[in-house]
Design a protein around this nucleic acid. Structure first.
Lengths: 212, 212
DNA sequence: GACCGGGCTGAACACGTGTACAGTATCGGC
DNA sequence: GCCGATACTGTACACGTGTTCAGCCCGGTC
Protein backbone atom coordinates (compact mmCIF):
# COMPACT_ATOMS: atom_id res chain seq x y z
CA UNK A 1 0.00 0.00 0.00
CA UNK A 2 3.04 2.25 0.15
CA UNK A 3 3.53 3.06 -3.45
CA UNK A 4 -0.10 3.42 -4.35
CA UNK A 5 -1.40 5.57 -1.54
CA UNK A 6 0.88 6.69 1.27
CA UNK A 7 2.75 9.94 1.09
CA UNK A 8 6.51 9.96 1.35
CA UNK A 9 8.19 12.05 4.02
CA UNK A 10 9.56 14.39 1.44
CA UNK A 11 6.12 15.10 0.03
CA UNK A 12 4.65 15.57 3.49
CA UNK A 13 7.34 18.11 4.33
CA UNK A 14 6.78 20.13 1.17
CA UNK A 15 3.03 20.04 1.53
CA UNK A 16 3.32 21.19 5.13
CA UNK A 17 5.83 23.86 4.20
CA UNK A 18 3.28 25.43 1.84
CA UNK A 19 0.81 25.75 4.67
CA UNK A 20 3.06 26.76 7.56
CA UNK A 21 5.30 29.12 5.61
CA UNK A 22 2.26 30.61 3.93
CA UNK A 23 0.53 31.24 7.24
CA UNK A 24 3.39 32.39 9.43
CA UNK A 25 6.02 33.67 7.06
CA UNK A 26 9.19 32.02 5.91
CA UNK A 27 11.85 33.86 7.86
CA UNK A 28 9.96 33.65 11.12
CA UNK A 29 9.12 29.96 10.87
CA UNK A 30 11.81 27.55 12.04
CA UNK A 31 12.77 24.34 10.38
CA UNK A 32 11.74 22.60 13.59
CA UNK A 33 8.21 23.98 13.35
CA UNK A 34 7.82 22.70 9.82
CA UNK A 35 9.12 19.30 10.88
CA UNK A 36 6.78 19.14 13.88
CA UNK A 37 3.77 20.13 11.77
CA UNK A 38 4.69 17.49 9.22
CA UNK A 39 5.13 14.85 11.90
CA UNK A 40 8.76 14.12 11.12
CA UNK A 41 12.08 14.83 12.79
CA UNK A 42 14.06 17.98 12.03
CA UNK A 43 16.92 15.79 10.89
CA UNK A 44 14.79 14.39 8.10
CA UNK A 45 14.30 17.83 6.66
CA UNK A 46 18.04 18.26 6.60
CA UNK A 47 18.43 14.80 5.12
CA UNK A 48 16.15 15.57 2.20
CA UNK A 49 16.88 19.22 1.55
CA UNK A 50 20.25 19.89 3.10
CA UNK A 51 18.97 22.57 5.42
CA UNK A 52 16.44 25.35 5.69
CA UNK A 53 17.73 27.18 2.66
CA UNK A 54 17.36 24.04 0.59
CA UNK A 55 13.88 23.47 1.94
CA UNK A 56 12.79 26.94 0.93
CA UNK A 57 14.34 26.50 -2.53
CA UNK A 58 12.55 23.17 -2.98
CA UNK A 59 9.27 24.67 -1.77
CA UNK A 60 9.68 27.59 -4.15
CA UNK A 61 10.24 25.27 -7.03
CA UNK A 62 7.42 22.88 -6.15
CA UNK A 63 4.98 25.76 -5.70
CA UNK A 64 5.92 27.31 -8.99
CA UNK A 65 5.61 24.00 -10.82
CA UNK A 66 2.23 23.16 -9.30
CA UNK A 67 0.89 26.60 -10.01
CA UNK A 68 2.17 26.51 -13.56
CA UNK A 69 0.71 23.06 -14.21
CA UNK A 70 -2.67 24.02 -12.81
CA UNK A 71 -2.71 27.31 -14.70
CA UNK A 72 -1.84 25.62 -17.96
CA UNK A 73 -4.50 23.00 -17.24
CA UNK A 74 -2.31 19.92 -16.75
CA UNK A 75 -3.27 17.41 -14.10
CA UNK A 76 -6.10 15.07 -13.29
CA UNK A 77 -9.08 17.12 -14.44
CA UNK A 78 -10.70 16.98 -17.85
CA UNK A 79 -9.01 18.46 -20.86
CA UNK A 80 -11.55 21.17 -21.65
CA UNK A 81 -9.84 23.81 -19.55
CA UNK A 82 -6.54 23.06 -21.22
CA UNK A 83 -8.23 23.54 -24.55
CA UNK A 84 -9.49 26.98 -23.74
CA UNK A 85 -6.26 27.95 -22.05
CA UNK A 86 -4.30 27.15 -25.17
CA UNK A 87 -6.47 29.09 -27.55
CA UNK A 88 -4.19 31.94 -28.48
CA UNK A 89 -4.76 35.63 -28.32
CA UNK A 90 -5.72 36.08 -31.92
CA UNK A 91 -9.40 35.79 -32.62
CA UNK A 92 -10.91 36.69 -29.24
CA UNK A 93 -11.37 40.31 -28.34
CA UNK A 94 -9.35 41.74 -25.46
CA UNK A 95 -12.18 41.92 -22.97
CA UNK A 96 -13.11 38.30 -23.34
CA UNK A 97 -9.54 37.08 -23.11
CA UNK A 98 -8.92 39.25 -20.12
CA UNK A 99 -11.91 37.86 -18.29
CA UNK A 100 -10.95 34.31 -19.14
CA UNK A 101 -7.40 34.77 -17.89
CA UNK A 102 -8.62 36.32 -14.67
CA UNK A 103 -11.08 33.49 -14.07
CA UNK A 104 -8.35 30.98 -14.79
CA UNK A 105 -6.08 32.49 -12.15
CA UNK A 106 -8.97 32.58 -9.69
CA UNK A 107 -9.71 28.92 -10.37
CA UNK A 108 -6.15 27.95 -9.55
CA UNK A 109 -6.28 29.96 -6.35
CA UNK A 110 -9.45 28.19 -5.29
CA UNK A 111 -7.96 24.81 -6.19
CA UNK A 112 -4.68 25.19 -4.33
CA UNK A 113 -4.98 27.97 -1.79
CA UNK A 114 -1.96 26.90 0.26
CA UNK A 115 0.33 26.93 -2.74
CA UNK A 116 -0.87 30.36 -3.78
CA UNK A 117 -0.62 31.72 -0.26
CA UNK A 118 2.93 30.46 -0.14
CA UNK A 119 3.77 32.11 -3.44
CA UNK A 120 2.36 35.36 -2.16
CA UNK A 121 4.63 35.14 0.84
CA UNK A 122 7.71 34.02 -1.04
CA UNK A 123 7.41 36.97 -3.40
CA UNK A 124 7.39 39.44 -0.60
CA UNK A 125 10.09 37.93 1.57
CA UNK A 126 13.61 37.83 0.28
CA UNK A 127 13.62 34.17 -0.73
CA UNK A 128 16.50 33.00 -2.89
CA UNK A 129 14.13 31.89 -5.63
CA UNK A 130 11.69 34.75 -5.33
CA UNK A 131 13.54 36.95 -7.79
CA UNK A 132 13.35 34.23 -10.44
CA UNK A 133 9.72 33.62 -9.54
CA UNK A 134 8.92 37.27 -9.96
CA UNK A 135 10.79 37.53 -13.21
CA UNK A 136 8.86 34.58 -14.58
CA UNK A 137 5.52 36.08 -13.67
CA UNK A 138 6.43 39.49 -15.01
CA UNK A 139 7.73 38.06 -18.26
CA UNK A 140 4.55 36.04 -18.72
CA UNK A 141 2.46 39.09 -17.94
CA UNK A 142 4.45 41.22 -20.32
CA UNK A 143 3.84 38.75 -23.14
CA UNK A 144 0.12 38.92 -22.57
CA UNK A 145 0.19 42.69 -22.47
CA UNK A 146 2.13 42.79 -25.71
CA UNK A 147 -0.24 40.28 -27.28
CA UNK A 148 -3.23 42.34 -26.25
CA UNK A 149 -1.50 45.40 -27.63
CA UNK A 150 -0.89 43.69 -30.99
CA UNK A 151 -4.55 42.71 -31.05
CA UNK A 152 -5.39 46.38 -30.63
CA UNK A 153 -7.04 45.88 -27.25
CA UNK A 154 -4.55 47.87 -25.19
CA UNK A 155 -4.94 51.62 -24.89
CA UNK A 156 -2.30 52.87 -27.32
CA UNK A 157 -0.75 55.44 -25.00
CA UNK A 158 -0.35 52.98 -22.14
CA UNK A 159 3.02 52.46 -20.45
CA UNK A 160 3.48 48.75 -21.08
CA UNK A 161 6.00 48.17 -18.34
CA UNK A 162 3.77 49.70 -15.73
CA UNK A 163 0.72 48.04 -17.24
CA UNK A 164 2.41 44.71 -16.64
CA UNK A 165 3.22 45.65 -13.09
CA UNK A 166 -0.32 46.83 -12.46
CA UNK A 167 -1.65 43.49 -13.63
CA UNK A 168 0.78 41.76 -11.35
CA UNK A 169 -0.12 43.80 -8.30
CA UNK A 170 -3.85 43.49 -8.80
CA UNK A 171 -3.51 39.73 -8.92
CA UNK A 172 -0.74 38.92 -6.49
CA UNK A 173 -0.74 41.66 -3.89
CA UNK A 174 -3.97 40.40 -2.31
CA UNK A 175 -2.24 37.10 -1.64
CA UNK A 176 0.66 38.81 0.06
CA UNK A 177 -1.70 40.90 2.15
CA UNK A 178 -4.13 38.06 2.83
CA UNK A 179 -3.94 38.05 6.63
CA UNK A 180 -4.93 41.72 6.66
CA UNK A 181 -7.69 41.34 4.11
CA UNK A 182 -9.86 39.00 6.14
CA UNK A 183 -10.73 41.93 8.39
CA UNK A 184 -11.86 44.21 5.57
CA UNK A 185 -13.75 41.68 3.49
CA UNK A 186 -16.10 39.82 5.79
CA UNK A 187 -15.20 36.63 3.98
CA UNK A 188 -12.09 34.66 3.32
CA UNK A 189 -10.35 36.08 0.26
CA UNK A 190 -10.35 32.70 -1.45
CA UNK A 191 -14.01 31.89 -0.80
CA UNK A 192 -15.81 31.46 -4.13
CA UNK A 193 -18.07 34.50 -3.73
CA UNK A 194 -15.17 36.75 -2.76
CA UNK A 195 -13.09 35.38 -5.60
CA UNK A 196 -15.84 36.29 -8.05
CA UNK A 197 -16.04 39.84 -6.73
CA UNK A 198 -12.28 40.13 -7.01
CA UNK A 199 -12.18 38.96 -10.61
CA UNK A 200 -15.10 41.15 -11.53
CA UNK A 201 -13.56 44.23 -9.92
CA UNK A 202 -10.26 43.65 -11.69
CA UNK A 203 -11.86 43.13 -15.08
CA UNK A 204 -14.00 46.23 -14.68
CA UNK A 205 -11.04 48.33 -13.60
CA UNK A 206 -8.86 47.16 -16.46
CA UNK A 207 -11.59 47.64 -19.03
CA UNK A 208 -13.22 50.84 -17.91
CA UNK A 209 -11.25 52.38 -15.07
CA UNK A 210 -12.88 53.55 -11.89
CA UNK A 211 -13.64 57.13 -12.79
CA UNK A 212 -15.54 58.09 -15.87
CA UNK B 1 25.42 71.79 21.70
CA UNK B 2 23.45 68.71 22.69
CA UNK B 3 19.93 70.05 22.73
CA UNK B 4 20.23 72.15 19.62
CA UNK B 5 21.83 69.74 17.22
CA UNK B 6 22.76 66.24 18.32
CA UNK B 7 20.42 63.33 17.98
CA UNK B 8 19.38 61.37 21.03
CA UNK B 9 20.01 57.63 21.15
CA UNK B 10 16.34 56.93 20.94
CA UNK B 11 15.97 58.94 17.75
CA UNK B 12 19.03 57.32 16.23
CA UNK B 13 17.63 53.87 16.93
CA UNK B 14 14.27 54.63 15.38
CA UNK B 15 15.82 56.29 12.34
CA UNK B 16 18.12 53.31 11.87
CA UNK B 17 15.25 50.88 12.38
CA UNK B 18 13.41 52.44 9.43
CA UNK B 19 16.36 51.77 7.18
CA UNK B 20 17.51 48.36 8.38
CA UNK B 21 14.06 46.86 8.88
CA UNK B 22 12.96 48.30 5.57
CA UNK B 23 15.91 46.82 3.74
CA UNK B 24 16.21 43.41 5.36
CA UNK B 25 12.81 42.70 6.81
CA UNK B 26 11.65 42.92 10.38
CA UNK B 27 11.50 39.30 11.45
CA UNK B 28 14.87 38.46 9.97
CA UNK B 29 16.71 41.45 11.43
CA UNK B 30 17.94 41.06 14.98
CA UNK B 31 17.82 43.69 17.66
CA UNK B 32 21.59 43.48 17.78
CA UNK B 33 21.90 44.39 14.12
CA UNK B 34 19.76 47.46 14.58
CA UNK B 35 21.82 48.47 17.60
CA UNK B 36 25.09 47.95 15.74
CA UNK B 37 23.90 49.96 12.75
CA UNK B 38 22.76 52.74 15.05
CA UNK B 39 26.08 52.72 16.90
CA UNK B 40 24.64 51.92 20.30
CA UNK B 41 24.57 48.90 22.56
CA UNK B 42 21.79 46.30 22.35
CA UNK B 43 20.96 47.03 25.97
CA UNK B 44 20.05 50.59 25.09
CA UNK B 45 17.39 49.36 22.73
CA UNK B 46 15.93 47.31 25.54
CA UNK B 47 16.24 50.28 27.88
CA UNK B 48 14.23 52.55 25.63
CA UNK B 49 11.73 50.18 24.09
CA UNK B 50 11.57 47.22 26.43
CA UNK B 51 12.62 44.73 23.80
CA UNK B 52 12.33 43.96 20.14
CA UNK B 53 8.56 43.87 20.17
CA UNK B 54 8.49 47.31 21.72
CA UNK B 55 11.00 48.59 19.19
CA UNK B 56 8.85 47.41 16.33
CA UNK B 57 5.75 48.94 17.88
CA UNK B 58 7.55 52.27 18.36
CA UNK B 59 8.89 52.14 14.81
CA UNK B 60 5.42 51.42 13.49
CA UNK B 61 3.99 54.34 15.34
CA UNK B 62 6.78 56.75 14.40
CA UNK B 63 6.55 55.76 10.74
CA UNK B 64 2.83 56.19 10.66
CA UNK B 65 3.02 59.57 12.36
CA UNK B 66 5.74 60.88 10.06
CA UNK B 67 3.96 59.68 6.99
CA UNK B 68 0.70 61.17 8.15
CA UNK B 69 2.30 64.51 8.97
CA UNK B 70 4.06 64.68 5.63
CA UNK B 71 0.97 63.65 3.73
CA UNK B 72 -1.13 66.23 5.49
CA UNK B 73 1.57 68.79 4.83
CA UNK B 74 2.73 69.51 8.38
CA UNK B 75 6.39 70.11 9.07
CA UNK B 76 9.11 72.54 8.09
CA UNK B 77 8.19 73.28 4.48
CA UNK B 78 6.05 76.16 3.27
CA UNK B 79 2.33 76.17 3.83
CA UNK B 80 1.19 76.05 0.21
CA UNK B 81 1.07 72.26 0.03
CA UNK B 82 -0.97 72.12 3.19
CA UNK B 83 -3.40 74.51 1.59
CA UNK B 84 -3.99 72.38 -1.43
CA UNK B 85 -4.09 69.20 0.66
CA UNK B 86 -6.90 70.59 2.75
CA UNK B 87 -9.05 71.74 -0.11
CA UNK B 88 -11.93 69.31 0.12
CA UNK B 89 -13.39 67.06 -2.47
CA UNK B 90 -16.28 69.30 -3.42
CA UNK B 91 -15.53 71.65 -6.24
CA UNK B 92 -12.74 69.81 -8.08
CA UNK B 93 -13.61 67.15 -10.59
CA UNK B 94 -12.60 63.58 -9.82
CA UNK B 95 -9.73 63.37 -12.27
CA UNK B 96 -7.99 66.42 -10.95
CA UNK B 97 -8.38 65.40 -7.33
CA UNK B 98 -7.17 61.92 -8.13
CA UNK B 99 -4.05 63.22 -9.81
CA UNK B 100 -3.36 65.59 -6.95
CA UNK B 101 -3.71 62.84 -4.35
CA UNK B 102 -1.42 60.53 -6.28
CA UNK B 103 1.21 63.24 -6.67
CA UNK B 104 0.96 63.99 -2.97
CA UNK B 105 1.64 60.40 -2.04
CA UNK B 106 4.52 60.29 -4.48
CA UNK B 107 5.99 63.44 -2.98
CA UNK B 108 5.95 61.91 0.49
CA UNK B 109 7.65 58.80 -0.86
CA UNK B 110 10.39 60.87 -2.43
CA UNK B 111 10.79 62.90 0.75
CA UNK B 112 11.08 60.01 3.17
CA UNK B 113 11.90 56.85 1.27
CA UNK B 114 13.10 54.91 4.32
CA UNK B 115 9.92 55.52 6.23
CA UNK B 116 7.80 54.45 3.27
CA UNK B 117 9.92 51.39 2.63
CA UNK B 118 9.49 50.44 6.25
CA UNK B 119 5.73 50.87 6.05
CA UNK B 120 5.64 48.65 2.98
CA UNK B 121 7.49 45.99 4.91
CA UNK B 122 5.49 46.32 8.11
CA UNK B 123 2.24 45.89 6.20
CA UNK B 124 3.35 42.65 4.70
CA UNK B 125 4.96 41.10 7.74
CA UNK B 126 2.81 40.22 10.71
CA UNK B 127 3.77 43.22 12.83
CA UNK B 128 1.64 43.86 15.90
CA UNK B 129 0.70 47.30 14.64
CA UNK B 130 0.36 46.42 10.99
CA UNK B 131 -3.31 45.51 11.27
CA UNK B 132 -4.10 48.92 12.74
CA UNK B 133 -1.89 50.54 10.12
CA UNK B 134 -3.72 48.77 7.35
CA UNK B 135 -7.10 49.59 8.78
CA UNK B 136 -6.18 53.25 8.95
CA UNK B 137 -5.09 53.34 5.33
CA UNK B 138 -8.11 51.43 4.14
CA UNK B 139 -10.50 53.63 6.10
CA UNK B 140 -8.87 56.75 4.69
CA UNK B 141 -9.04 55.32 1.21
CA UNK B 142 -12.63 54.32 1.63
CA UNK B 143 -13.54 57.87 2.63
CA UNK B 144 -11.96 59.22 -0.52
CA UNK B 145 -13.72 56.65 -2.65
CA UNK B 146 -17.04 57.52 -1.05
CA UNK B 147 -16.36 61.23 -1.50
CA UNK B 148 -15.54 60.72 -5.16
CA UNK B 149 -18.70 58.67 -5.49
CA UNK B 150 -20.80 61.46 -3.94
CA UNK B 151 -19.21 63.89 -6.37
CA UNK B 152 -20.35 61.63 -9.17
CA UNK B 153 -16.85 60.81 -10.31
CA UNK B 154 -16.91 57.11 -9.47
CA UNK B 155 -18.34 54.65 -11.96
CA UNK B 156 -21.78 53.98 -10.48
CA UNK B 157 -21.61 50.19 -10.73
CA UNK B 158 -18.22 49.96 -9.05
CA UNK B 159 -17.68 47.70 -6.04
CA UNK B 160 -16.56 50.29 -3.51
CA UNK B 161 -14.85 47.86 -1.16
CA UNK B 162 -12.75 46.43 -3.94
CA UNK B 163 -12.19 49.86 -5.42
CA UNK B 164 -10.65 50.89 -2.12
CA UNK B 165 -8.46 47.82 -2.07
CA UNK B 166 -7.38 48.40 -5.65
CA UNK B 167 -6.29 51.91 -4.79
CA UNK B 168 -4.39 50.55 -1.84
CA UNK B 169 -2.60 47.87 -3.83
CA UNK B 170 -1.66 50.17 -6.68
CA UNK B 171 -0.05 52.55 -4.22
CA UNK B 172 1.42 50.34 -1.53
CA UNK B 173 2.21 47.04 -3.18
CA UNK B 174 5.16 48.51 -5.12
CA UNK B 175 6.73 49.46 -1.80
CA UNK B 176 6.35 45.94 -0.46
CA UNK B 177 7.83 44.51 -3.65
CA UNK B 178 10.51 47.14 -3.98
CA UNK B 179 13.56 44.84 -3.88
CA UNK B 180 12.13 42.91 -6.83
CA UNK B 181 11.13 45.97 -8.80
CA UNK B 182 14.61 47.36 -9.25
CA UNK B 183 15.30 44.55 -11.70
CA UNK B 184 12.28 45.25 -13.89
CA UNK B 185 12.43 49.01 -13.94
CA UNK B 186 15.91 50.05 -14.80
CA UNK B 187 15.70 52.77 -12.20
CA UNK B 188 15.13 52.94 -8.51
CA UNK B 189 11.40 52.93 -7.85
CA UNK B 190 11.62 56.13 -5.84
CA UNK B 191 13.71 58.06 -8.36
CA UNK B 192 11.79 61.13 -9.52
CA UNK B 193 11.38 60.00 -13.11
CA UNK B 194 10.16 56.56 -12.09
CA UNK B 195 7.83 58.10 -9.55
CA UNK B 196 6.28 60.25 -12.27
CA UNK B 197 5.72 57.24 -14.52
CA UNK B 198 4.14 55.40 -11.64
CA UNK B 199 1.73 58.21 -10.79
CA UNK B 200 0.87 58.71 -14.43
CA UNK B 201 0.19 55.01 -14.99
CA UNK B 202 -2.03 54.84 -11.93
CA UNK B 203 -4.02 57.91 -12.88
CA UNK B 204 -4.48 56.66 -16.41
CA UNK B 205 -5.57 53.22 -15.23
CA UNK B 206 -8.06 54.59 -12.74
CA UNK B 207 -9.49 57.08 -15.20
CA UNK B 208 -9.61 55.12 -18.39
CA UNK B 209 -8.66 51.50 -17.73
CA UNK B 210 -6.11 49.70 -19.81
CA UNK B 211 -8.33 48.23 -22.51
CA UNK B 212 -10.69 50.28 -24.55
C1' DG C 1 20.95 -15.73 5.11
C1' DA C 2 24.10 -11.89 4.49
C1' DC C 3 24.34 -7.46 2.89
C1' DC C 4 23.56 -2.99 1.48
C1' DG C 5 21.36 1.45 0.82
C1' DG C 6 18.10 4.80 1.82
C1' DG C 7 14.38 6.70 4.77
C1' DC C 8 14.37 8.14 9.26
C1' DT C 9 15.49 9.25 14.31
C1' DG C 10 17.57 11.04 19.00
C1' DA C 11 21.12 13.22 21.08
C1' DA C 12 24.42 16.54 20.81
C1' DC C 13 26.90 20.79 19.23
C1' DA C 14 28.08 25.70 18.26
C1' DC C 15 25.98 29.80 17.69
C1' DG C 16 22.86 33.79 17.60
C1' DT C 17 18.96 35.37 19.72
C1' DG C 18 16.23 38.29 23.18
C1' DT C 19 16.68 39.82 27.68
C1' DA C 20 18.23 40.91 32.75
C1' DC C 21 21.26 43.14 35.74
C1' DA C 22 24.79 45.64 37.91
C1' DG C 23 27.37 49.42 37.14
C1' DT C 24 29.27 53.97 34.99
C1' DA C 25 28.91 58.60 33.04
C1' DT C 26 26.51 62.82 32.58
C1' DC C 27 23.29 66.35 33.34
C1' DG C 28 19.90 69.44 35.82
C1' DG C 29 18.08 71.04 40.29
C1' DC C 30 18.82 72.04 45.14
C1' DG D 1 29.06 71.03 46.62
C1' DC D 2 25.87 66.97 46.54
C1' DC D 3 21.99 64.05 44.70
C1' DG D 4 18.79 61.87 42.02
C1' DA D 5 17.43 60.74 37.56
C1' DT D 6 18.34 59.34 33.22
C1' DA D 7 21.23 57.75 29.17
C1' DC D 8 24.09 54.27 28.31
C1' DT D 9 27.37 50.04 28.51
C1' DG D 10 29.56 45.13 29.37
C1' DT D 11 28.69 40.89 30.94
C1' DA D 12 26.04 37.06 31.62
C1' DC D 13 22.15 33.80 31.06
C1' DA D 14 18.58 30.82 29.18
C1' DC D 15 16.78 29.49 25.08
C1' DG D 16 15.78 28.39 20.22
C1' DT D 17 18.11 28.05 16.08
C1' DG D 18 20.39 25.40 12.10
C1' DT D 19 23.18 21.58 11.63
C1' DT D 20 25.96 17.14 12.53
C1' DC D 21 26.50 12.38 13.39
C1' DA D 22 26.09 7.75 14.83
C1' DG D 23 22.83 4.54 14.50
C1' DC D 24 18.10 2.37 13.75
C1' DC D 25 14.63 -0.03 10.71
C1' DC D 26 13.35 -2.27 6.56
C1' DG D 27 12.74 -3.55 1.65
C1' DG D 28 15.43 -5.20 -2.24
C1' DT D 29 19.71 -7.87 -4.14
C1' DC D 30 23.32 -11.18 -4.47
Amino acid sequence: MRSVEAETGREAIIRTAFRVFGESGIASTSLREVARAAGVSPALVVHHFGGKEGLVAATDEAALRRFGDAYRGDGAEGSESKREADSGVRGGDGAELLRRRAAQTARVMAEMPEVCAYLGRALVEGTAGSAALFRLMIDGGREEVDALAEAGALRPDADRTWATLQHFFLIWAPLSFMPLLQGVLGDELLAPAQLDRWVEANVQLLEKGLYS
